[in-house]
Design a protein around this nucleic acid. Sequence first.
RNA 1: GUCCCUAUCGUCUAGCCUGGCCCAGGACACCGGCCUUUCACGCCGGCGACGGGGGUUCGAAUCCCCCUGGGGACGCCA
Length: 465
Amino acid sequence: MSDLRVRFAPSPTGYLHIGGARTALFNYLLARQQQGIFVLRIEDTDVERSTQESVDAILNAMEWLGLSCDEGPFYQSDNFDHYKQKVQQLLDEGKAYRCYCTPEELEAKREAAMKEGRKPKYDGTCRNRNDQPEQPYVVRFKLPEGREEVAFDDQIKGRISFKTEELDDLIIQRTDGTPTYNFVVVVDDAEMGMTLVIRGDDHVNNTPRQILLYEALGYPVPQFAHVPMILGSDKKRLSKRHGATSVMAYQEMGYLPEAMVNYLVRLGWSHGDEEIFSMDDLIEKFSLANVGRAAGVFNPEKLLWLNSHYIKTGDPQRLADLLKPFLAEKGINTETGPDLVAVVKSLQERAATMVEMADGAEFYYRDPVHYDEKAREKFLTADKASIFETIADQLEACSEFAEESLEAAFAVVMEKTELKFGKIAQPLRVALTGGTASPSIYEVLQVLGKESALKRINQALNSLS
RNA sequence: GUCCCUAUCGUCUAGCCUGGCCCAGGACACCGGCCUUUCACGCCGGCGACGGGGGUUCGAAUCCCCCUGGGGACGCCA
């Protein structure tokens, strides 16, 4: 048991997206590897935008990915009183002050500063006023004076430093009395005993202000590790227009959680030339030292490839269980018909997603067979009657549908019809599956079973034209 | 605009810290071939990168500087 304590701190204003999931994963991996503690904290200080639906969505996604936390979820909205106390503490110590500037005034100042090419930071208007008018106010943290720079050693990016003059007096409490992100994140990370804060790259600029806040509040400063952003194919920040960004959307599209985990971790992290990692591998091998420093582009094709890999190598029984809901959605009942596990085995090498597998499995359960029009026109023609009759005869005589006996049966069919296997297989495939693409004929025959196969051949015989 | 970060194939990356083993390796995608009862799988092969310019050095993808490109931040969002 190490003393490592990390956390994932999403704000519940939407679903868990790809980027958040990766951050959560990195945290989880490190905690498990070092037998530290992984805390989940919901950052819902923005009461307006936070929803319970989002909390549930995030929790679901984490569970799906297998990222269990050791403590939490904690909700910041449960601690407003405490934050208020802390703000008061800074006020009492003269480290914070009331600011009466209105949002409109501030906006105007920002624009003016931008226009003049200055950094748009607060000008300190209310910093030294002594009166306390009966007006709405926010509380600002007073930047400590006489300090030139704030620096920290990022565990991923190395040393990062800022000139204090780039910073300004940030708002830590809103007009309505609720605390802001930069304040609560410090209070909570400190009081929850975080030793390492792993978060998105977009927080680098917040870090120096937060460090100052840690110091002002008398807290120890944790270590930081800023993970690079994930971009879309156009190198812009990943968003809906790049396709699905919600983790759970991938589950719905038939992706396996282990594929998502494997993909996510390899986006930005590597371990030599290895590509395939189980969660256990990752817990053993993951390291912040091998996380890249530049933003990465989300590549759906590689995710797909990993997914097909995990489907190919996955346990058929488990895949069968996962497949059921996808089949049910198509109105297919698997209680009657071929053994689902056998069906899955025949499709594992052919499906890249569970949705594809469900599509491929459909014909096994559709009775009578629904023919693809083009396939029917091409292969279910009147001249095929004798072929089907011969096949039916031989199959009828086949005591068991095993690879060997089927081969023997078809050897006879080929001999009697004087046709090569290919000429026989394709019409039969259409008869059995309704289409021209399917698992191998022998496999289909075995999975379907004698009775069903014969029934389908008869249906074809009656459908010839 | 200002500040922070960053820079190897189209993409994810190995190599960079500890220069020579790298006329740069792997993976996805793409192209060609093989296998084959269809579709896939698989196998074999191909295409394809050290952003530019200066240094340092006998020697630089690796070290230093500048430029350029990309990302992020600049909210009473997180």
